[in-house]
Every structure is written in structure tokens, then in C-alpha cells.
Amino acid sequence: MMYRLLCLFLLTATHAAAVETCHGDTACQVGDRSYHVLEPDGWDGETPLPVLLHFHGWARQGAVVVNHERIAGATKLRGVLLVAPNGLRKTWDFWTSDTDDVGFADQVLADVALRYPIDPERIYVSGYSYGGAMAWRFVCQSGNDTTALLAVAGSIRQTEDCPQAPREVRHVHGTDDTVMAFPFGPDGDTTYPVALWRAKYDCNGATPRGDWSVEPFLTLTRVEWTDCANGRVTLDTHPGGHFIPHGWIGRQLDELLGRIPTYP
């Protein structure tokens, strides 16, 4: 009993110190770099937390992510710990495999695990725009066994050879995106944005899942690949431009966590 009380005391003390030194707008230091972290609403301080590692867009920082309604607003309500690394010069080096940013993000996750009890079976990796591309690069190369990729309007080249992959991929992109242009395939193929993962998982035919929306002004069309040797791929497309669709991150987390999808 004394040992269990001591462990509880140490966990509580470690958590209290973590919150005191860095949380929300106050960044956590990892060497000469940093990241932001945001706890979910109502967390009891003990239950292991799923993690959403989210890479910010170009010219942003992690402080934007932990205050973003469509990102932090989703994690806070679903018991998910939000982790938002800060890119050097407010950007990410995702263009080739020769990048230090993957190793930095690995260090961030290791540091988070020292500060919080995390659920290693529920590590989700996300990002928007340049951050979406960085999320692709991370799951392509990281030494971490990530559960799912949740990428928004950004990717690496579909012809790249990834040495590893997450257990599941979910991607959303607007066909009218002119910032990180929608990667149409041959003959205007709208399933090409996830061609890399379909090949990596050795997936067969696509299954249309129909349209869905959480706001009346934007309809998303879903296609899934479940007949794969490894993994699973989900693609949502919409006719809009370069943005995070309302409710998209929340819906993905709900589905991954086995919850009934809700909005917000």
C-alpha cells in the first residue's frame, strides 16, 4: 500500500511540475527547441491519455494549435492530449528524408511521455498544410509506432518510398486548393492523394462511403480502402480550398476512439 501511495504521489508531483513549467501558451523545452501541450477537459490526472501530435502550418507556431477551435476544440472534448511542436523559423523541413524535424518530433513524444501517462496504442499524428506534409514525413520515417495519420491539405510526393507506415491513414483535401494543390491523378483521379499509402498497404478496390457534413455549407465525400494486406486508408475530399474543415479532426478522433461522431 505504501508503495502504491508513493507512486501516486510521484505521478501527481511530476504532473503538477509539468503543468507549472509548461502548458498551453507556455512552451515546453526540448534541448534548444520547444513544443506546446494541452490537456483535455476533465482529465483526472491519472488515466493514460491518447495523444494527438499536430504539426502547425507555415508561418505559425504550436501556440496557435493549442488555441485553435478546430484542433484543440476537438481534443479537449474527447480526452485527448494535444501536442504541438514548434518548427524552426515557423516552418518544417519535410521535402526529403534528410531532415532533423523527424528526430525532433520523436524527442517531443519522448518528453511528453515523461510528463504525462500516455496510451502508446493511441498515438495519432496530424498536421495542416506544411504541417500536413510534415505529418506524412514523420509517420514515413519515425521510429515511433504510430496508430494513425490524420493529415489535412498537405502531403509528401506520392512516389516516395516510405520505410514504415502508421497502422491507419486518414487524409482530407479540397479539390479547389491552390496553396497545397490537390494532387489529381491520371485522368483527374481524385483518389490519388493517398496513392502512396494504398501501395504501401497493398490495398485493393476503393469503397465509396458517401457524403457527410457537420456544417451545411461544406459536404465531404468519403472513400475507404479496407481490403489491404496491412493497414487501412480513408480519404475525404471536398470542393473547397485550403483549410481545416469544421469537425473533421473531431470526427476522425471519434471514429478512432470508438465514439459516436459528434460536433463539435
Rank of each mutant, 00 (worst) to 15 (best):
3 Y>T: 14
3 Y>W: 10
5 L>P: 05
5 L>T: 11
8 L>K: 14
18 A>I: 07
20 E>M: 14
26 T>N: 09
34 S>C: 10
36 H>M: 07
43 W>Q: 04
45 G>D: 02
56 H>R: 05
62 G>I: 01
64 V>D: 13
67 N>Y: 03
68 H>T: 14
68 H>N: 13
72 A>W: 01
73 G>C: 09
75 T>P: 01
79 G>H: 07
81 L>C: 11
82 L>I: 01
97 S>D: 11
97 S>I: 11
107 Q>H: 14
113 A>W: 01
116 Y>C: 05
118 I>Q: 03
126 S>M: 05
127 G>S: 10
132 G>C: 05
133 A>R: 12
154 G>N: 04
158 Q>T: 04
163 P>Q: 07
165 A>G: 15
173 H>M: 00
176 D>S: 15
177 D>V: 08
179 V>S: 15
180 M>K: 11
182 F>T: 11
186 P>C: 13
186 P>L: 02
187 D>G: 05
187 D>P: 13
190 T>C: 00
191 T>R: 13
197 W>Y: 04
199 A>Q: 12
201 Y>E: 04
202 D>F: 08
202 D>A: 15
203 C>L: 06
214 V>K: 11
219 T>N: 14
220 L>A: 04
233 V>N: 05
235 L>Q: 08
236 D>V: 12
237 T>K: 08
238 H>P: 10
241 G>L: 15
248 W>R: 09
248 W>V: 06
249 I>H: 03
260 I>M: 12
264 P>T: 08
